[in-house]
Amino acid sequence: MPEVTISIGGREFEVACQGGEEHFLRTAAAMLDAEASVLLGQIGRMPEGRMLLMAGLMLADKTAGMEDSLRAMQEQLAEAEAALAAARSAPVKVEVPVIPPQLTETLAEIAARAEALADKVEESAS
């Protein structure tokens, strides 16, 4: 098991971890160190246990807030997916324009005139 030296609040710690997990340990330690640095900047020197406890609690608070936000986003996503599924399953409404009766009558009249002209042309040609 590899051992990694991490620094939190200006103090060095030797921590063992699984092989290949060193990067994750360093990342977590950096997050904890950032919180510890804020505490030390506000309060000053404090016992190691208290510093680690307070920094851990601050991280836990941030994590809880992020989990609440994530849960709300997941609910919104579920609602949007449900609305999309409902929209996809609803029948598609297609509107077909209605031909006004005047247009039909006008076209019939034009057709009748065209036939009459054709008849006249035939009579004169024969």
Results as ranks from 00 to 15, higher is better:
Ala90Asp: 02
Ser89Leu: 04
Leu40Pro: 02
Gln42Ser: 09
Ile110Leu: 08
Arg88Thr: 07
Leu77His: 04
Ile6Pro: 03
Ile99Thr: 12
Val121Asp: 08
Glu12Val: 15
Arg11Cys: 02
Leu52Trp: 06
Val96Trp: 05
Leu117Pro: 00
Glu95Asn: 10
Ala36Arg: 00
Met58Ser: 14
Ser126Ala: 15
His23Trp: 04
Leu103Asp: 12
Met58Gln: 15
Lys93Asp: 04
Met46Gln: 07
Met31Asn: 14
Ala55His: 04
Met73Pro: 00
Glu48Gly: 09
Leu84Asn: 05
Ala80Thr: 09
Met73Arg: 15
Glu35Cys: 03
Gly10Glu: 02
Leu25His: 04
Glu123Gln: 15
Ser124His: 14
Pro2Ala: 10
Pro47Cys: 06
Arg26Tyr: 06
Arg45His: 13
Asp61Trp: 04
Ala85Asp: 07
Ala80Ser: 06
Gly65Glu: 11
Lys93Gly: 02
Glu95Trp: 08
Val94Arg: 05
Ile43Glu: 03
Val94Lys: 06
Glu79Leu: 13
Ala28Cys: 01
Pro91Arg: 07
Ala125Gln: 11
Ala16Leu: 09
Ala116Gln: 12
Leu107Pro: 00
Ala118Met: 09
Ser7Asn: 15
Gly49Tyr: 04
Leu59Ser: 05
Ala86Cys: 01
Glu67Met: 13
Val15Arg: 01
Gly9Gln: 00
Ala85Asn: 08
Ala90Ile: 00
Ala125Gly: 10
Ala90Phe: 00
Val98Asn: 01
Gly65Gln: 09
Glu48Leu: 09
Pro97Phe: 00
Asp119Thr: 13
Leu117His: 11
Met1Tyr: 01
Ala111Arg: 14
Thr63Ser: 15
Leu53Asp: 12
Ala114Ile: 03
Met46His: 03
Gly20Cys: 03
Val38Leu: 13
Leu32Ile: 08
Leu84Phe: 11
Gly56Ile: 02
Val94Glu: 05
Val4Ser: 07
Leu52Glu: 01
Ile8Asn: 00
Gly19Arg: 12
Glu21Ile: 03
Ile6Phe: 04
Glu122Arg: 14
Gly41Asn: 00
Glu81Val: 02
Ala30Gln: 14
Pro97Thr: 09
Gly65Phe: 06
Pro100Val: 10
Ala111Gly: 03
Ala55Val: 02
Ala108Ser: 11
Leu107Glu: 06
Cys17Val: 05
Pro47His: 11
Ala111Ile: 07
Glu22Arg: 00
Lys120Gln: 15
Ala64Arg: 13
Leu53His: 09
Met51Tyr: 04
Ile6His: 00
Gln76Leu: 12
Ala82Leu: 10
Arg11Phe: 05
Met46Pro: 00
Ala34Gly: 12
Ala28His: 01
Glu67Asn: 13
Ile6Glu: 05
Ala28Gly: 02
Met1Arg: 08
Lys93Cys: 03
Glu35His: 08
Leu53Asn: 10
Ile99Arg: 12
Glu79Phe: 09
Arg88Gln: 11
Arg26Lys: 15
Leu57Met: 11
Gln76Asp: 14
Ala16Gln: 13
Ala80Val: 08
Ala16Thr: 12
Asp61Asn: 14
Val92Trp: 02
Arg88Tyr: 04
Ser37Lys: 15
Met1Trp: 04
Val96Asp: 00
Phe24Cys: 03
Ala29Thr: 08
